[in-house]
Amino acid sequence: MNSNGADFPLVRARGLRKEYGSGEGLVRAVDEIDLDVATGEAVAIMGPSGCGKSTLLHLLGGLDRPTAGELWLAGRRVEKLSERGLAQLRRLDVGFVFQAFHLIDELTAQENVELPALLAGRSPRQARRSARELLEQVGLADRADHLPSALSGGQRQRVAVARALANEPKLVLADEPTGNLDSAATLELLRLFDALHAAGLTLVVVTHDERIAATADRMISMRDGAFVDETRLVGGSRGQLGSLFGVELEV
């Protein structure tokens, strides 16, 4: 998967910076961030609203260009890519999941999932087959011909996840994917992410939800555009579950 040797991370950012406005109104949405994400790793980014999480994610996914700094994805320099190169990056290497879903209203669930494959030049037949499989995987095979307006929030987000996976990306970026979901739908999505992570997908998730963050391998806290804390989350093999929360009877 990694073209530049086994120990080169899938994502590497050095001194990444993004500024909006100028003069008095200058906002450093992302301020000198260094980040490495290894292949297969799941990273959660948490922080208060407006601290620059979305901006960072947009930079990582080639949706926006940094003001300064260096960014590699799979060994390729991203910030130097042309507009066309960025489009290709978004198309093939990255899958995006947005808080607001961003499904195309006019297209059915199936067609939304087909879209990235079609954009990548795959044949309609191929695109359709893989879209069916993905919808099956997210448990929405029976909703394939529904328009987004006829789906619940959780279902829409699962369609969006299926779409993000359409071109078998190296990296999936999710921006508050459960921000608009209730707790049952959140659990659904968590299961999905967990399965993807277990299957070796690299994930960067921005979230307010500690529960999602806790499933990651690493949790990063962000304040005012910078990383302030990093927690490597280990364990979780249910080893201590009994001793921590186990139920005992009074004897």
Binding site: R211, A214, V234, G236, Q240, L241, L244
Partner: peptide
């Protein structure tokens, strides 16, 4: 707490 959450979350999933 995060570690605990991770474990319980896993179990819940």
């Amino acid at each position: 707490l995060l570690r605990r959450l991770r474990e319980v979350g896993r179990a819940a999933m």
